[in-house]
């Protein structure tokens, strides 16, 4: 594969809504292919906004975003977004929900079946394929949402606090599953979270943003080897990193 200088490139981005204050200002960042980047910071720091800008769900007020060498709106079909809530269509069963992106793309039924069958197996929910979303637990819904996001084999996965509403045990499990899927699929990920522990566990890189702070406040590399597992959380290196990130997060909060 041709070596690119960077996979996602953010150049002096700024965002404000109307004449309001700058939610993001003068933010530049280069992300390599295959990185897992967590965005963390106090509420109002613009981390979710940044995700929407990358997804081109909303345009930046200034600056440029390039993905695989082209403007972000061109790259949309290689991206998938996972929201805070599972955002499943309540009138479709699990199976049909996973198919939605394939259906919108106009793929034939046969191909759709093949992909959703594979994904159901991947997220281990074959036994509830005919169930409707309201019959599922929060964790199951999120897994379906994840499978749907993976349906079109995206290059980039954008996740906006996807596990925020789940209990810690379910969240830890899903974190491990997410990394396992990444081993197979190899997408580049942007992950917004409030949890330092989660950010450190998942990421190869943690970006701390501040409220009213221009640019990326801290850019911390997480040098823990992949694949990571439940044992990783017990390692001293992991705990040191959690402590370091927490300290830096507190520093940006007190600014």
């Amino acid at each position: 594969m041709e070596r690119r200088s960077s996979f996602v490139s953010l150049k002096n981005i700024g965002k404000r809504y109307g004449q309001g204050p700058w939610v993001l200002d003068d933010l530049s960042c280069e992300i390599d292919q295959g990185e897992f980047v967590s965005l963390i910071g106090p509420s109002g720091c613009g981390k979710s906004t940044l995700l929407k800008l990358i997804a081109s769900l909303s345009p930046p007020s200034k600056g440029e975003i390039e993905i695989e060498g082209s403007p972000s709106e061109m790259a949309r079909e290689h991206m998938a977004f996972i929201f805070q809530e599972a955002t499943l269509l309540p009138w479709l069963n699990v199976w049909r929900n996973i198919e939605v992106p394939l259906r919108l793309k106009g793929l034939p039924q046969e191909e759709r079946n093949q992909v959703s069958q594979k994904l159901l197996k991947l997220i281990r929910l074959e036994h509830v394929r005919e169930h409707y979303p309201r019959q599922l637990s929060g964790g199951m819904k999120m897994r379906v949402s994840l499978a749907r996001a993976l349906a079109l084999s995206p290059h980039i996965l954008l996740m906006d606090e996807p596990f925020g509403a789940l209990d810690e045990m379910t969240r830890n499990h899903l974190n491990e599953e997410l990394l396992a899927l990444r081993e197979v699929e190899g997408w580049t990920a942007f992950f917004v979270t409030h949890s330092v522990a989660e950010a450190v566990f998942l990421s190869s890189r943690v970006l701390i943003l501040g409220v009213g702070v221009a640019g990326v406040h801290e850019d911390i590399a997480i040098n823990l080897p992949y694949p990571r597992s439940a044992e990783t959380r017990e390692s001293e290196q992991y705990q040191l990193l959690v402590r370091e990130v927490s300290r830096k997060l507190r520093a940006v909060e007190s600014l």
Binding site: L57, R76, E85, T87, L89, V100, P101, L104, K105, L152
Partner: peptide
């Protein structure tokens, strides 16, 4: 739900798809 609308946007859904497959149901 705005998130559902955004989901359809991310899939490059057409306006007709958005109305028929999302808004009407």
């Amino acid at each position: 739900d705005q998130n559902l609308v955004d989901l359809f946007k991310m899939c490059n859904a057409s306006r007709i798809q958005e109305v028929a497959l999302l808004r009407v149901p």
